[in-house]
Write a protein that binds this DNA or RNA. Sequence first.
DNA 1: AGATAACTACCGAACGTTCGTTTAGGTAAA
DNA 2: TTTACCTAAACGAACGTTCGGTAGTTATCT
Lengths: 196, 196
Amino acid sequence: MNSKEKILSKAIVLFAEKGYSGLSMRMLATAVQMSVAAIYHHFPDKNTLYLEAVRFAFSGKELVFAQVWESACPPEEKLANFVRSLIEVIVQDRDFHRLMQREIMEANPERLQLLAQGVFKKQFCLLMQFTAELAPELDAYLVATSIIGLIKNYIDYEPLQRYFPGRKPEHDQPEIIAAHITTLLLQGLKMTGTRS
Amino acid sequence: MNSKEKILSKAIVLFAEKGYSGLSMRMLATAVQMSVAAIYHHFPDKNTLYLEAVRFAFSGKELVFAQVWESACPPEEKLANFVRSLIEVIVQDRDFHRLMQREIMEANPERLQLLAQGVFKKQFCLLMQFTAELAPELDAYLVATSIIGLIKNYIDYEPLQRYFPGRKPEHDQPEIIAAHITTLLLQGLKMTGTRS
DNA sequence: AGATAACTACCGAACGTTCGTTTAGGTAAA
DNA sequence: TTTACCTAAACGAACGTTCGGTAGTTATCT
């Protein structure tokens, strides 16, 4: 790993943790054990560094889901696989996820558009295409959004919900969450007794 | 509205927009048309001001849902009412919502515990209690989390999803979203033709 | 009632620190 | 000799915070 990649990968972690204005160039320089000017040798300014870090974090994430959609499973199983994959991707790369969340909260419209079309659009379309097959009577856009929302919320608010009653150790296990979400999606709340 | 409240309500908006380190005391002073020292007259330091702003934003939010739970509707209607109420609360007070999101992302464990137990715990318990009645076979904690996640995601990621295909003007209307979420929850994806 | 002390709310100016960024220069490999 | 990569030191600007002081109101005492 060269210096530039070292800076970028550390920047992802620290920007995700502290936010854009919360991380100073000096902090980053200390973290990668370089001088501030060394960073400025690789990047013209802080903003460019930030954008490159975001882009760096996003690269290579798309490939994970390709095999889910391409597999020859029945639709219900495909849905379960997608849910499980997305949970795992988010859980395993929390820095990426937090950085993304910050971007969506803070970014200006142009950058959001870039993000939407460059990174997420294709995945969202694949999901919509699939839900259209699975539930043709429903609005595919809304269903896809719902699925993403169900999954993301477990990760986003886990630190808060840790302090709520009813929390059990098994709620830390991605497979349990994935199973719950899949069942909920397929059968709704009015199901006829499958699990307690 | 006195000066202290004026400072606090403006701080909520600006902290939500720029984050803790993104908002300087000088900016805030300019925004409320006071001197920096005037702010320091009311608050000992920036951190205390931030915490008081968070607390100020949270006050009085609990009352909205009381009547939902107390009403004598059938459970399905109760669920629909809750979904609609939560969406409306979030949509109408976006600053509160963004501030909350930031807190959950950035706050340390002690502050999270304070937030969880002081603000959200009671509401979450009421929702769990209700879902336990509605779907006794399911894990109430997971169901409650799912419902919150379904609702919140529409608001959180709306700015991003604006750039996705399949987006329609009606997706801006809270009632449409509420109806979709309620139907999805009650019947799941495998429903027998109710809406397109 | 009138003088005075105390208090509240605010201001301009400055404190020391840290910020993003630049400059001038050094070192090793090609 | 050039190029890539790095350093120490410094720049002005902005940061959180403090200080001394000034109006205006309220309370206290004669």
